[in-house]
């Protein structure tokens, strides 16, 4: 039997009543292994106006580069203190902030290795289907060999790379639409 997946529709402006119970802006707890990182930014639209009704979901591996999921059969240790899932709403100014640990490298396809990254889904009114993007970390040597970054036009790669500010907080914005700085989104 072959079926087609149900059509996606927008979360709309009132998703909070159904989804905030699972908000999680601290993905790590006191016992989680790995380097703590905080990531903050803003969601803006094609006019540069803030999007104050967006929500992000984050999925990542643990510090060893292992996903807490049965499909990950790598010989690496799970961290009982880390699931790797975050649900992060934006505030009235379109800003978000979450904290986690920097993931380890994970395998890519065809024997490649992927640089440390987070998968990010973006939901909002006006997004009939959620967007999928990634966060990489500025200064990671492995970024240069990452097989997915290599698929992205060189001048747009910076939109996927979070940069630490003077306080060590990583900055990363979601530009839904724009001439220069539009975030790279993936056809998933």
């Amino acid at each position: 039997m072959t079926l087609n997946a149900t059509t996606s529709h927008t979360v709309g402006p009132y998703y909070h009543i159904g989804l905030t119970w699972l908000n999680r802006e601290d993905l790590a707890n006191a016992g989680t292994l790995g380097e703590r990182v905080a990531i903050t930014g803003q969601v803006v639209d094609g006019n540069g106006d803030v999007v104050n009704d967006a929500m992000l979901e984050v999925w990542q591996a643990n510090a060893a580069g292992k996903y807490d999921h049965p499909e990950d059969d790598q010989d690496k240790a799970l961290d009982p203190n880390f699931e790797g899932f975050g649900r992060v709403p934006v505030d009235g100014e379109g800003r978000f902030r979450f904290s986690t640990i920097k993931p380890g490298s994970v395998p890519g396809l065809k024997g490649t290795t992927q640089a440390p990254h987070l998968v990010v889904l973006v939901f909002a009114r006006g997004l009939v289907k959620h967007l999928l993007t990634r966060i990489y970390f500025d200064g990671e040597a492995a970024n240069g060999d990452d097989p997915l970054l290599a698929c992205v036009p060189a001048e747009r790669r910076r939109t996927l790379v979070a940069k630490a500010d003077a306080a060590g907080v990583y900055q990363w914005n979601v530009v839904l639409q724009g001439t220069d700085e539009e975030t790279v989104f993936f056809d998933y």
């Binding site: 996903y67 499909e71 994970v106 395998p107 396809l109 997915l148 992205v152 790279v184 989104f185 056809d187």
Partner: peptide
């Protein structure tokens, strides 16, 4: 988005 989406091969991530 106004720019082309980048095709995503499905990896372990």
């Amino acid at each position: 988005p106004s720019k082309p989406l980048v095709f995503l091969p499905h990896s372990l991530s």
